[in-house]
Simulated scan of single mutants.
Amino acid sequence: MKRIVICLVVMIGFVGVCGAQNELAKIEYGEAETAFQEQKYKKTLAHLETVKALLGSTNAKVMYLEILSRHQVYLFDKQFNVSKDFAETYGLDPKTYLENTLINLNSLVADYDTYKNIKNIGLESKESYAKKILEVEQRLKDIDANGYKDVTKEITLIEASKRIENLSDTYIASFEASVPLAKLKEVYMINKEHKALNVGMDDFTLGGKLYEAKKYKEARPYYQKACDAGNTMACTALKNLITTIENGG
């Protein structure tokens, strides 16, 4: 009898803890929704990570908001972040790209009140853009003083896109029959966009590593394979690689 009572006390205590965690998760999720409506997508993701930690898992609502938030962060980073290798892949001069980025950021800060009334553009705080302006200005100064070595940041767009693709794959496979059609369609369209971006990405990445090691002839078949699969970045990289080889690289 004593053992049964102890077990009941333990079970009640466990249920109480779980219940408290669920309530805290609801509070955090509410904060995530508020941040999303305010277009503060990185803040949204931070709240969602707390929700998942409290629940010990995820669910359709959490995953849906995470996919949308990660996609918005990706779109912003794609517009404003660049590395030397990323710029050169697209046939751009990194310094020119950064100078154009600086113009765009200054314009964004100057017209911030106009932009903040436009929905779904992934707008961050005005202070965040002011900080980015200082970072870009410093990167340009470093380029002028030291050249490109160790100046530009490592690009993470490929990894971010692959994560969104995998997350949306899981959402579709797990919740296709149970979520509203509008939400399913939204996630499906995001999934299609990132699948198109990531086609042939393994070969493109391998080719990139060989290119970095200056093994140009070895990199070529990987770029070719990725390009043939429909990866536009690989096609551009292949074109630049052929030019490098023809110039004696």
Rank of each mutant, 00 (worst) to 15 (best):
M1F: 08
K2P: 01
R3L: 07
R3D: 09
L8G: 14
L8K: 12
V9P: 00
V10F: 08
G13M: 01
G13S: 02
F14R: 08
G19T: 11
N22H: 14
I27M: 13
E28G: 02
E28K: 08
Y29T: 00
Y29Q: 00
E33Q: 12
A35P: 00
F36H: 06
Q39N: 03
K43W: 07
K43Y: 10
E49A: 00
A53E: 10
A53D: 10
L55C: 03
L55W: 01
G56R: 00
T58C: 01
T58S: 07
V62M: 04
I67D: 08
S69L: 00
R70G: 06
Y74D: 13
F76T: 09
K78W: 11
N81I: 10
V82W: 14
V82K: 11
K84Q: 12
K84Y: 05
A87T: 02
T89N: 12
Y90W: 11
L92S: 09
L92A: 10
E99M: 04
L102R: 03
I103C: 02
N104V: 10
L105A: 10
N106R: 14
T114Q: 13
N117T: 08
K119P: 06
K119A: 04
I121H: 01
S125E: 05
S125T: 13
K131W: 11
K131Y: 14
K132T: 08
L134F: 13
E135V: 13
V136H: 07
E137G: 05
L140N: 02
K141E: 04
I143Q: 03
K149N: 07
D150W: 06
V151N: 09
K153Q: 14
L157G: 13
L157P: 08
I158L: 15
E159S: 14
R163S: 13
N166S: 06
L167D: 06
S168N: 03
S168H: 03
D169T: 06
F175L: 04
E176Q: 12
S178P: 02
K183L: 01
K185T: 09
E186K: 13
Y188C: 03
Y188G: 07
E193P: 06
K195T: 01
K195H: 04
A196N: 02
A196F: 00
L197A: 11
N198F: 08
N198W: 04
D202K: 15
D202A: 15
L206H: 14
Y211L: 15
E212T: 15
A213G: 04
K215G: 15
K217D: 15
P221N: 03
Q224N: 15
C227A: 15
D228Q: 14
T232L: 14
C235R: 09
T236N: 14
K239Y: 15
N240T: 07
G249P: 04
